[in-house]
């Protein structure tokens, strides 16, 4: 732009030399104090980059070697040390002992709530309501591997079919259709029989045909009347709760090619005190036995 800095006749001040359609702008420089503060911030930022990790490159740690993560370590350690007496009591008491002591129970419910949100809610939902596709609801009264405090603790600590613990919960259901143990028609009949256990069969004749097949193939684990068996984690079949869905197609699929859910073992991942707290918390969700 052609610039012509001149003195404005009216105000006696210099213009910036810019002109737009005859309009000229007075030159109003920044206040000196502002300018110097601005320069100071630039100098400060340069110093900052030299001294502190400010650049997004690996190794750009700054001369001081300061690391945010290290700064938080002593805080966390102090906090852990503060909690340690309580955690020791929680470890020693076990779920039953915690439930019997109002102070420990209050602590466990509060701590279990946080631990549940951090570790369990991803699959089991924020309130333990579960999710479709094999993530069981923990707030209802149906338990596959047992719902008393110790059973819950054991399941949390050792996991299910994850191969992470010698004491894990493990069982297998045969793939009756996929492995050719039953024909599709037989699977259909068994499915009708299974539905009849909770009074929902649509084809009475098929259900009766399936009774013999059920007694032969299923009753050893799921019980003669579908009452289930917690020893082997065989779910109850005569109630209204279905892990993989309770309509006929879902039941047929579960017989034909069952899915067996996996839960990691939390022992080793979490402090035993936390496992105990989780057991107490899950037990208190509403379905504990």
């Amino acid at each position: 732009m052609p610039t012509k800095i001149e003195k404005d006749a009216l105000t006696g001040r210099e213009t910036t030399g810019h002109e737009w359609d005859g309009l000229k702008e007075l030159n109003t420089p920044l206040p000196k104090w502002w300018l110097w503060v601005f320069y100071a911030t630039i100098a400060f930022s340069v110093l900052w980059v030299i001294l502190y990790p400010a650049l997004p490159f690996r190794g750009a740690t700054g001369l001081t070697g300061w690391v945010a993560r290290e700064a938080v370590v002593p805080v966390m350690e102090a906090e852990r040390a503060r909690q340690e007496p309580m955690l020791a009591r929680l470890r020693a008491a076990g779920p039953a002992g915690i439930a019997a002591d109002p102070e420990l129970r209050a602590f466990a419910l509060a701590g279990g709530r946080i631990a549940f949100a951090n570790n369990c809610a991803g699959c089991h939902g924020a309130g333990g309501q579960g999710a479709p596709g094999g993530f069981p609801n923990l707030a209802d009264d149906d338990w596959i591997w047992g719902g008393d405090l110790e059973a819950i603790r054991h399941t949390i600590a050792h996991g299910i079919r994850a191969g992470e613990s010698a004491e894990e919960r493990i069982s297998m259901m045969p793939r009756f259709l996929a492995d050719g143990m039953l024909t599709a028609a037989q699977v259909n009949d068994v499915a009708e029989h299974v539905l009849s256990l909770s009074g929902r069969a649509t084809d009475r004749a098929a259900a009766e045909r399936g009774a013999a097949l059920y007694a032969e193939n299923c009753a050893s684990c799921h019980g003669a009347r579908g009452e289930g068996n917690r020893e082997v984690g065989a779910p109850r079949l005569n109630d209204r709760i279905w892990l993989y869905g309770g309509d006929k197609a879902a039941v047929v699929r579960s017989i034909g090619s069952p899915r067996m859910g996996v839960m990691p073992a939390w022992e080793g991942r979490l402090d035993p005190a936390v496992v105990n707290m989780l057991a107490v918390y899950v037990h208190a969700l509403g379905g504990g036995e």
Partner: peptide, 18 residues
């Protein structure tokens, strides 16, 4: 009222709220 879950269906078909 508990919002998660809104309600729990029980094995006998009952409903529970917390």
């Amino acid at each position: 009222r508990d919002r998660a879950p809104l309600f729990v269906e029980l094995s006998d078909g009952g409903i529970r709220n917390a």
